[in-house]
Amino acid sequence: MPGHIESITLYIPDEYQSLNELVPSLELTPLDVRMFSRFYGLARFPRAPGSLDDLFRPLMSQFTARHEPLLPDIRYVVHTHTLPAVKPFPDSISALLPEYGFRHDIEFCSLTMGHCSSSLTAVDWLSRKLKAGEYALLLIGEKAFHPRVELIADTTIMGECACAVLISNPEGRGNVLGRFTTQAGEFNRQSGHASDCSPRFSDHYFPFILRALHAALNHFDVTPETLSWLAPHNVNISSWNKILGEIDLPKNKVLLENISKYGHCFGADPFINLLTLLQQERVQSGDKILLASVGMGATFSSLLIQADSSHPIAVIAI
C-alpha cells in the first residue's frame, strides 16, 4: 500500500570539521587524505556539539512549528539509525516527544537492522500501518561520536544531521510508488573488529549494488531513460562514477554534489538529496525519482517516488 511523503524537514549543524581536522583522531595517512579528497570528493562534515538530543531539538522545534495542526493526527514515530543502540531505551528520542506537543499515546519504535538503508524501508512500513487521516513521522539521525563510527575504512567519513519525514496514506495514489529491498546474508556479521572472520563487504560491494540496482529498475519497470533522478546515499563520488558506468545512467541524473558538502550522513542521505532537488526546482511534475541506499549487513533498499505538482512535498531546511 504505497504512502505519501508530505514533507521533509532537515537540520544540518552550522559547525563543520574539515578533512584535515579529522586526520589526528581518525589516524589518516597522507595517502588516505589524498584518496578521500581527490578521488572520493569528501571535504567537510557537519558535526554538532552536544548530545543526540541537542542534534534533534532544532529539528523538532521547526517541524512542530510548521505542522502544529497535524500533531494530534500523528499516530506513529519511528527513529531509524545505523548503530543498534544510540541511547538507553528509557532515554530514547521518544522522551523528547511530550515537550513538542505530540499525543500522549503515540506509538514509538526504532528500526536499525537495515543500518543506513533502514530509513527507506521505514517509509513503506509506516505507510502500511496508517489508516486514512493518520500520519506517521520518520526521524533519522545519530552522532558520529567515536572514530569507529566516524570512519568506514577506505570508503567514507560520516557527517551529522537530523531529518524528519512526514508520511500519510492517502485514499488515492501517493507519491511513493513502491519499495524494493534485497539483502546479502553472508555479510550479516560486520562488527568492525579486525578479528572478525566474516567476508569483507567492501570486496563485494560493487557486484552487490549493481545487481540490486538492476533488480530495482526491473521491479519498478523503469529504465535509465525513463528514470528522472537517482537520489543515492552519499558514500563517495568514485564509487558512484564506477556504478553509473555499468548501468548506463547519465551522471546528470544523479545528485552527487552533496557528498563534498556533508559526507555520509548515515540514513539521511537520500532525503537530503531529494530535498536538494526539490529546493532547487530540478523536479517536474510526473518525474520519477529513485531513492537508494546500502547498509552494512548487507541491505540494499530503494523507494520510487513520483513528483505531483497538485500535492507537492513541502521542504523545510534549517
Rank of each mutant, 00 (worst) to 15 (best):
S119L: 00
T182M: 14
F266D: 02
T9I: 12
V315H: 06
Q284C: 01
R75N: 02
L10E: 04
Q280L: 12
D14K: 12
I152A: 01
G297Q: 08
D105P: 03
H311G: 03
A194N: 11
L22Q: 11
A317N: 08
A48C: 14
P270N: 11
F56I: 12
H67I: 06
N258L: 00
L10N: 06
V254S: 07
R47Q: 11
D91I: 03
F63P: 01
G245K: 15
K253F: 04
A132F: 02
V23M: 11
L96H: 02
I259L: 04
P98V: 04
L28E: 09
Q190L: 08
I247E: 13
S302C: 05
C197M: 07
H214E: 15
S25Q: 01
F220I: 06
F220R: 02
S127I: 12
L97P: 03
F300L: 06
F102L: 15
H233E: 14
F187R: 00
E99C: 15
A231P: 03
R173Q: 12
L19F: 09
V86N: 12
T223H: 04
D221E: 09
P30H: 15
G101S: 04
F208Q: 09
V294T: 07
I318Y: 03
P250A: 09
T155H: 10
I12F: 02
L290M: 06
E257Y: 13
T64A: 02
C197W: 10
D54Y: 10
H67G: 08
D269T: 11
G159Y: 09
L137C: 13
I305D: 02
F300P: 06
R211E: 04
V123P: 11
H214P: 05
T156G: 00
F180Y: 15
S239F: 00
Q284G: 06
H4R: 11
Y100E: 00
F102M: 07
I152C: 05
L96C: 14
L55K: 12
L275T: 13
Q284D: 10
A215M: 02
H104C: 00
G41S: 12
P232D: 01
I318S: 15
A162N: 03
K288Y: 05
A317D: 07
L139C: 02
F208R: 14
H79Y: 02
V33E: 08
L28T: 02
F180G: 10
L138E: 05
L256W: 01
L10W: 01
H4A: 14
G263R: 09
T112C: 12
W125A: 00
A307D: 14
L217Y: 14
E225H: 07
F36H: 10
Q306L: 08
V78A: 05
S37E: 09
S301Q: 10
R211I: 03
G297D: 06
L227Q: 09
F89A: 04
T80E: 07
G286P: 11
D308H: 02
P49D: 12
S94H: 13
F187P: 00
A122C: 01
A122H: 03
E6W: 04
G185L: 08
E27Y: 03
G172Q: 09
T80V: 08
L138W: 13
F145P: 13
Y11H: 14
R200D: 15
Y100G: 01
N258E: 11
Q62S: 13
K261P: 07
T112H: 12
L255A: 12
L126C: 09
K143D: 09
